[in-house]
């Protein structure tokens, strides 16, 4: 217990450090004093500096925190639920479902109906369509799970649904024109910077609701560790548990996918890093650990993605893949225990 507290404190302090670094670090060089002034008094000396700090860097850093936490919690929930170390928010086809929703709007409607969306409205339409896409896939999986009790079958069906969504997206891409295709491809690359202040006011409560529901599922997740038969024999309402876990995962992963595009590997890697750090299978500890470690890893990814002075920014999911894959491989080689959670 005392050891956990030490690790948690260290992680939280590091998280704050990385958060501050993310505000200071960027393609445009701004003196430290001006950044502080912009944050504290809303005036960073130059108008563009104030704008960059308050309207770009701060929302982006907050989004990174939300995205990292949400994806990691979702990954933890899926890994425990399916008792599979390679499960993540994407294994069930949640992200593919969200992509399908977005593809319908960006590629389908715009070209078929001939209207063009712009500005804030366009972003909202994208968000809602992503939620609907993710929700649709999860609803389908949930309905199947009521009839089929075998959790592995459900996982395989999730992969199938995901593949179908991806296939439909490919068909839509094939038939769409260059301009629409480019806007869709930009979205699939994912970016934390897309989230402006007003979006944050939607993202924050969405992730908040997902987080609260996931807190309610902690005991259920712990019981699920022993498998469904044991969970049931210890009094768990398995269908309710599945519903709550799926629901919070779709809100968490769906919202992030909607706002930032598909971001991979955080969801798989972070729960493993947390298990290694805390050496426990207690979901209570792991869930809070995922919040802190996920946020931190996402901020680090964001730091890496920008090259100061050059004005170049790498797509965030490229960075998370480059960071996350070695972590997964390292875990496999280090203790070869990835076969169980």
């Amino acid at each position: 217990m005392k050891k956990n507290l030490v690790i948690f404190s260290t992680l939280t302090i590091s998280l704050l450090g990385v958060f501050v670094a993310d505000l200071f670090w960027g393609s445009v060089h701004i003196p430290v004093k001006n950044i502080l002034q912009a944050l504290l008094w809303g005036n960073g000396g130059k108008e563009e500096w104030t704008l960059i700090v308050l309207d770009f860097r701060l929302p982006k850093a907050l989004t990174a925190v939300l995205a990292g936490s949400a994806l990691s919690i979702s990954g933890l929930q899926m890994q425990t639920m399916f008792r599979n170390p390679l499960a993540g928010p994407y294994t069930l086809g949640i992200s593919s479902g969200a992509s399908l929703g977005v593809a319908f709007v960006l590629l389908g409607f715009s070209s078929v109906l001939g209207f063009h969306l712009d500005g804030i409205a366009a972003n909202w339409v994208i968000v809602i369509s992503a939620w609907l896409g993710a929700g649709a896939v999860l609803l389908l999986i949930f309905l199947v799970s009521l009839r089929i009790n075998d959790i592995m079958t459900i996982l395989i069906l999730g992969i199938m649904f995901g593949s179908v969504s991806t296939a439909i997206v490919s068909v839509l891409q094939y038939f769409s024109n260059e301009v629409l295709l480019k806007s869709f491809l930009v979205w699939t690359m994912g970016s934390l910077g897309n989230v402006s202040g007003t979006h944050l006011w939607v993202l924050l409560p969405s992730v908040g609701i997902g987080l609260i529901i996931s807190l309610l599922t902690i005991k259920m997740l712990n019981l699920m560790l022993l498998g469904e038969n044991y969970a049931r024999s210890m009094g768990l309402n398995v269908n309710l548990a599945r519903f709550l876990i799926f629901f919070s995962t779709s809100i968490l992963a769906g919202s992030i996918t909607a706002f930032c595009g598909p971001i991979g590997f955080i969801g798989i890697a972070v729960p493993h890093i947390c298990r290694m750090l805390f050496k426990t299978s207690d979901q209570k500890v792991l869930l809070f650990a995922c919040i802190v470690v996920g946020a931190m890893l996402m901020l680090v990814s964001d730091l890496i993605s920008q090259i100061p002075g050059s004005g170049m920014v790498l797509p965030i999911n490229t960075v998370t893949a480059l960071l996350g894959i070695p972590v997964v491989i390292w875990i496999i080689f280090r203790n070869q225990r990835i076969s169980s959670i």
Binding site: L225, L226, G227, N229, Y230, S233, M234, G235, R275, F278, K279, T280, S281, R337, S339, S340, I341
Partner: peptide, 16 residues
Amino acid sequence: ARKVSFVSTEIIRLNH
């Protein structure tokens, strides 16, 4: 669950 408990054939494998 307070009346009947169950031990299955399944071998539980959990790290940590």
